[in-house]
Simulated assay, not measured.
Amino acid sequence: MAKELVSLHFLPPQFHIPRLPLRPKPPQNPIFPRRRNRTSSNDDGVPSNEVKTIAKFKSRHNYIRVIEVSRRSDHPLAGSRLLLLDTPGNIHSISFLLKTLTDSYFDVFATLPPIIPPGSIGVLGFGAGSTARLILELYPPEYTIHGWEIDPSVIDVGREFFSLSKLERDHKDRIFINIGDALDASVRTGFSGILVDLFSEGSVIKELQDPNVWRGLKSRLRKRGRIMVNVGGRCVEAEDSERDGDLVMVETLKAMSQVFGDKLFVLTLGSGDDSSVALTGDLPDLDAWKKSLPVRELRSFVDMWKPFTEFTLS
């Protein structure tokens, strides 16, 4: 894989990083991801001298870039390393050198274990391992990770640049990575939980707008198992301009609602400009959920869930 890496010789004066669903911020200082039609000088561009490109190459499935944002940057991503995929450069993994949490929707994923039975958690769309790292580092050995990623080059990048190899060594009996179609994912005992983060060409994959796909995933859950899904939103930049982020999100949620009925809830980060996350199953006892979370920073997400029947685009 190393032979495929290409240095980036030129960056524009402002290096923009799309698809950045951040955790809620105080209303007086909101942070929003940049979209293509945003031209204000107050957008979330990062000066090029504060961004370092570590890897840039094309694989069979993706246009892959790995970048670092300087710790000196005055930006929410300061000190982070990012995996960007697809031509628009949507973020598919994020890690910080000095902290575990990511200040993104990956942290929402990390709230799932306390509300599912101990056992296997499927991560469909593994990326470089951001979700796996959070769960393995925050929760006890009763939870194991079974990841699926269609692009072996993405796993190579995770091992080389995102400490995935170390994660595998440190948790060798708890993490299992599979190369292949994530929609074929299964384990013999059934999944306690499934985390879905499947994008292609900058958009939530088309299969997730098909209720039959959700029926198939539901059938692979254990009793009391749940599915949590990054359903995207308007901050997602697709290569196909007709794949509008909001519309794709709504169609995905509608397909899920045909399978899960009123047992479908939605959490939207930011003020509507960021991604939304969906959760299946009965809404848990919120106080008990908060108390069971391993770090207090995750508790802010618990009160943000709304029934899909009350979900509206802002």
Rank of each mutant, 00 (worst) to 15 (best):
A2W: 11
E4P: 13
L11A: 10
R23P: 07
R23I: 10
K25P: 03
K25L: 08
P30S: 13
S40C: 11
D43P: 08
G45C: 15
K58M: 07
K58Y: 09
N62Q: 05
Y63S: 12
V66F: 11
I67S: 00
R72N: 15
P76W: 03
L77P: 07
D86C: 00
D86E: 08
I94F: 00
S95W: 01
L97S: 14
L101N: 06
D103P: 02
D103A: 07
Y105P: 06
F109W: 05
P117W: 01
I121E: 03
G125T: 08
G129S: 15
T131D: 04
T131S: 07
I135L: 10
D151L: 01
D156G: 02
F161Y: 15
F162R: 04
S163K: 03
H171D: 09
K172R: 11
D173F: 13
I177F: 02
I179G: 06
A182Q: 06
D184Y: 13
V187S: 05
S192M: 07
G193P: 12
S200T: 09
V204C: 07
E207Q: 02
Q209L: 10
G216A: 04
S219E: 10
I227D: 01
V229Y: 05
G245W: 06
D246S: 11
K254G: 05
A255I: 14
A255S: 15
V266E: 10
T268N: 07
T268C: 06
G272I: 12
D273P: 10
V277T: 06
A278N: 01
L279G: 14
P284F: 03
D285Q: 03
D285I: 00
L286W: 03
L286M: 02
P294C: 01
R299K: 07
R299A: 01
R299Q: 09
K306W: 11
K306L: 13
F311C: 12
S314A: 14
